[in-house]
């Protein structure tokens, strides 16, 4: 099994954020992955999608599903993350007030992604964009 999926994540549309992660969740369930794996992929990917909507005007999601791992690559052409170490701290957020009133902006996005994925790579350049590569391993 080697399934590759691609989604466009629209910018500034909170009502559609989560569509891609919802579809991936359903797909993984159908394929018979363990509920824990499905949940970890869904949460990590949703946080990434929300980040792209809040900060980067949307982006793209590429998902590769293998029997022993699921890899999600989220790519955007947003402002980039000037200080990754700071962004990884729980509670640190640059989300605007209108986003906070929706219940986001708790500064838990990247920490949650790190918590729920087995490996996380952040490739970011200020003014050019960010690519997140998260891998969730299937432990047998």
């Amino acid at each position: 099994m080697n399934i590759k999926l691609h989604y466009d994540v629209p910018g500034d549309d909170f009502t559609r954020a989560g569509e891609a992660s919802g579809l991936v969740k359903r797909k993984l369930k159908q394929l018979g992955f363990e509920p824990d794996v499905v949940r970890r992929v869904a949460i990590a990917m949703y946080e990434g999608e929300i980040n792209m909507v809040i900060h980067a005007g949307g982006g793209e999601a590429d998902v590769e599903i293998l029997p022993d791992r699921v890899t999600v690559v989220l790519t955007d052409h947003g402002p980039g993350i000037p200080d990754v170490e700071q962004a990884m701290q729980e509670g640190w957020s640059t989300a605007p007030d209108n986003v906070r009133s929706l219940g986001f902006g708790a500064g838990m996005g990247l920490p949650n992604i790190k918590k729920y994925s087995d490996t996380l790579e952040i490739d970011t350049k200020v003014g050019e964009g960010t690519a997140l590569t998260m891998t969730i391993l299937v432990k047998g």
């Binding site: 949460i43 929300i50 929706l102 219940g103 986001f104 949650n112």
Partner: peptide, 24 residues
């Protein structure tokens, strides 16, 4: 009520008590 907070900590099968009634 903080969505990311909840998503990172709520467990499968929980009844989630909140005041947030939006699509997210």
């Amino acid at each position: 009520d903080l969505l990311s907070w909840v998503m990172g900590r709520a467990k499968e099968g929980d009844a989630w008590i909140t005041v947030m009634g939006n699509v997210n």
